[in-house]
Design a protein around this nucleic acid. Structure first.
Length: 808
RNA sequence: GCGGGCAUGGUGUAAUGGUAGCCACGGUGGUCUUAGGAGCCACUGGAGAAAUCCGUGCAGGUUCGAAUCCUGUUGCCCGCACCA
């Protein structure tokens, strides 16, 4: 009773076509071509032990559709895939199960590869990259050496973010609300010697060059905010000890209102002043307390200001010679500006709060607000007028800033200054599973880069990958490997034992895809010139201030040293929303709401999964997974299958379907370009509904299969073959649409009377306005509302509606 | 606190300032069936017998016309957060 032979048997169709595509290499990018190039990129996955998550197919399918469409438009397309395989989860798994991370990685990559192939993505598998492959990380290390040689990599001791659980330092970007981005454990400050990369040197260019690229606005805004440019002045205050205290302020106009100063607890001058401090014990105790607080505690406690007045030293306000007290407090950050501030309690909320608690003087210097004894007046616009400020009196804030800045410069006590929130990138990790940093310490010569000819510096085999409690890398125990000779003097030397962070390998991987097997350079000049830049890069918002920023920085550096031909790596950046579990919550193992793509493919097929994940909602918004809704997409493909079996043999379009076909061809093309995949699919569903009503021909079906193929490639190949199509459907040209054929002979228009819809009329598509108005007025339903009234005005919106404005 | 976003049927959503709810899910009824968790048909924002009226978080405004633009407001989400 079941018609097995004719059923849509996705389970056998899908592997069949995956094999055929692979054999025919239909998705291989050509190294040179007469066609224009198109480089579409997705963020390469981290091959975790859990396998592909149902969140992955959303961006992957989207770019697969975009690149399939580009191929059909005649582009030479590069759509590559690889694996970002260094990193903590693999290392932790290896420790727990006593399997070498390299083996774990290999297994995970094999599983990911199987799953990605199962979903029918048109990746060029000949270009696959793996960041843990020595042939790859040789070039990651090479880039590090170039950064070092150009003064952009340096080792320094400074307070860094330390994850108490991972036993490892974190970059600023990896700390989220005071806890470790990865494991959620508290982050504390720890003084450690670390390799740093001078991303701050590129801060201004990272802001400016956003103007030249086509990134969605929220990505640009978030990057600008993260870099955090602010303009103001640096001003030098003299201490009673004769020392200079330099502060940064965005409000030099309020200098006359500076009634005290605050240093961060870590400030270097405190140590210097120890002999003159009468309350040294109190100061030291406060410093200790501040150091042991985690970032989370520091922010949680921000309601209540704390601090200690330095007894025995004071500062002099340079504009009026007044002696003012100096405090230390953890509300002043050591790592921003100069680590010291001038406090103007009348015009800064934080200073005001502190002044109230510690009884400092509050002097109004900008009038226009409420009583400054009751609240700070912080307006920076032209609402405030300077008072109590000698030569600044009467000016607005905006007018006063350049005047005082010039005055400071003339007196040699200050100058205009730009500051950024962005800090240098902490690049060392005390972990095993990462790229070794190719540096050697020699007691005579200091830090020395290893010769480029010795790259790659291989990650040695170790017995134990456990992070050590003393905060040193597991590599530090490998004395055979650590002890080496100095490349400079030949004497005994020690290797750097920290490794690079996970972000290293992903900062340049898109370049390697251009020429993945090159052993002379990270990629050949010809390949870089041909493929650069990435035309369209889609990825998650969570990488905006991590990977996306880091890779822009590396790329700019590579541009500066002549390696890459473009200032920016990516021309266009878009971002997808998250897929949430059935309850609207984030999918996670602990909630037990994770959907595995393997199960969906098994039950419904890859084409249904692809279709559903694109139909689920607005691509940029978060969307909730629904097992039920998947069925709707399966039903749609069943209908397509049945229609293909039952359609008439005519190669021509059915006249009744003509307008619908042309409209849908245009709609799907536009929607792919605009990433509105959900409405593209809705339009094709409508077309299929019309086919069911009107009947359809082989010609209708072949056009439908062509435009559906980027979304559901397997079923379209099978039916294309069944209907006698030549070659692969994925290699067809995108069908041309004829604008004139999208318009029917007559159109239905709504008739409004005084803005309310009262009737619908059908008029010839080419009717002029007068004829439309006449037809509208002739309608009996309309006349009901216009009887005895005068037509004052009429508005005609061609093809849509006519609005008659009438008055008694 | 600062920056960004969102708010439309029972649900996911759709609507170049131009007929609000396309397309799906779910639901109701019918049909076919030994059976239906398959398929097909019809209905499905609310009220009403109907004419019609009311509906896009809330309050205003601009406009012939507002889900869309403007002002204010409430609630959610995301990013940053003592950045001087």
């Amino acid at each position: 009773m079941e018609v097995c032979a004719l059923k849509y048997d996705f389970a056998s169709i899908e592997p069949k076509w995956q094999k055929k595509w692979e054999e025919a290499k239909v998705y291989a990018a050509e190294d040179s071509s007469v066609k224009p190039k198109f480089y579409g990129l997705i963020e390469f996955p981290y091959p975790s032990g859990q396998g592909l998550h149902v969140g992955h197919p959303r961006p992957f399918t989207a770019m697969d559709i975009v690149t399939r469409k580009k191929r059909m438009d005649g582009y030479n397309v590069l759509f590559p895939i690889g694996f970002d395989a260094f990193g903590l989860p693999t290392e932790n798994y290896a420790i727990k199960n006593h399997i070498h991370p390299a083996i774990v990685t290999k297994q995970n990559i094999a599983n990911f590869t199987r799953q990605l192939k199962m979903l029918g993505y048109g990746f060029d598998w000949d270009r696959v990259v793996d960041t843990t492959d020595p042939g790859y990380y040789k070039w990651t290390q090479w880039i590090f050496l170039q950064l070092y040689k150009h003064g952009l990599a340096y080792k320094t001791t400074m307070p860094v973010n330390w994850c108490t659980s991972c036993k490892c330092v974190l970059a600023n970007e990896e700390v989220v609300e005071g806890v470790c981005e990865r494991c959620g454990a508290p982050v504390i400050r720890k003084e450690k010697s670390q390799w740093m990369l001078k991303i701050t040197e590129y801060a201004q260019r990272l802001i400016d060059d956003l103007d030249d690229v086509d990134f969605i606005e929220r990505v640009k805004i978030q990057q600008r905010n993260w870099i955090g440019r602010s303009t103001g002045a640096e001003v030098t205050f003299k201490a009673t000890t004769g020392d200079d205290i330099v502060v940064f302020t965005t409000r030099p106009d309020t200098l006359f209102g500076a009634t005290y100063m605050v240093l961060s607890p870590e400030h270097a001058l405190i140590k210097k002043w120890a002999p003159v401090l009468k309350n040294l014990d109190e100061v030291t105790a406060y410093q200790k307390a501040a150091a042991s607080k985690s970032d989370l505690e520091r922010t949680e406690l921000n309601k209540e200001k704390t601090g200690v007045k330095l007894d025995g030293v004071a500062a002099v306000n340079p504009v009026n010679g007044r002696e003012i007290p100096i405090f230390i407090s953890d509300y002043v950050l050591a790592t921003y500006g100069t680590g010291a501030i001038m406090a103007v309690p009348a015009h800064d909320d934080r200073d005001w709060e502190f002044a109230k608690k510690f009884g400092c003087e509050i002097i109004e210097v900008v009038s226009g607000g409420e009583d400054v004894q009751k609240a700070a007046f912080t307006a920076k616009d032209d609402t405030g007028i300077l008072v109590n400020s000698e030569f600044l009196n009467g000016l607005t804030v905006k007018q006063a800033i350049p005047v005082i800045t010039k005055w400071l410069e003339e007196k040699g006590i200050g100058s205009a200054k730009v500051n950024y929130k962005l800090r240098d990138w902490v690049f060392s990790r005390q972990r095993y599973w990462g790229e070794p940093i190719p540096m050697v310490w020699c007691d005579n010569c200091g830090w020395q880069p290893i010769p480029e000819s010795e790259l790659p510096l291989l990650l040695p085999e170790v017995e134990s990958y456990e992070p050590t409690d003393d905060g040193e890398s597991p590599l530090s125990k490998m004395t055979d490997w650590v002890n080496t000779t100095c490349p400079c003097c030949g004497g005994p030397a020690r290797r750097e034992t920290d490794t690079m962070p996970q972000w290293a390998g992903s900062s340049w991987y898109f370049l390697r895809y251009m020429d993945p097997k090159n052993d002379k350079a990270l990629a050949s000049k010809e390949a870089l010139d041909y493929w650069s830049p990435v035309d369209w890069y889609n990825g998650g918002m969570e990488h905006t201030t991590l990977h996306l920023l880091y890779s822009r920085f590396w790329h700019k550096f590579l541009y500066d040293i002549g390696v890459v031909p473009t200032k920016e790596p990516y021309q266009k950046r878009t971002s997808h929303g998250m897929i949430l579990g059935e309850g609207g919550e984030k999918m996670s193992k602990s909630r037990g709401n994770v959907v595995n793509p393997d199960d969906v493919v098994k039950n419904y097929g890859a084409d249904t999964l692809r279709l559903y994940i694109m139909f689920i909602g607005d691509f940029e918004q978060a969307a909730v997974w629904s097992d039920n809704a998947v069925k709707g997409c399966k039903r749609f493909l069943d209908k397509v299958w049945n229609l293909a079996e039952s359609c008439d043999a005519s190669p021509e379009h059915t006249p009744a379907n003509e307008a619908g076909l042309h409209k849908t061809i245009r709609k799907v093309a536009d929607d792919i370009e605009g990433m509105k995949f959900n409405t593209a699919i809705a339009a094709m569903m409508t077309l299929v509904g019309d086919f069911q009503k009107n009947g359809c021909s082989r010609g209708d079906m072949k056009t439908l299969l062509t435009i559906l193929s980027p979304f559901a490639p397997h079923i379209c190949e099978e039916l294309w073959e069944m209907l006698g199509g030549e070659g692969f459907v994925c290699q067809q040209s995108w069908p041309a649409y004829d604008e004139s054929k999208t318009v029917a002979a007559t159109v239905q228009m709504a008739v409004q009377v005084n803005g309310k819809v009262r009737a619908n009329i059908v008029v010839p598509a080419d009717a002029d306005n007068d004829a439309i108005v006449a037809a509208a007025q002739a309608d009996p339903k309309v006349q009901k509302f216009t009887a005895g009234m005068n037509l004052v005005k009429s508005i005609v919106v061609p093809g849509r509606l006519v609005n008659l404005i009438v008055k008694p």
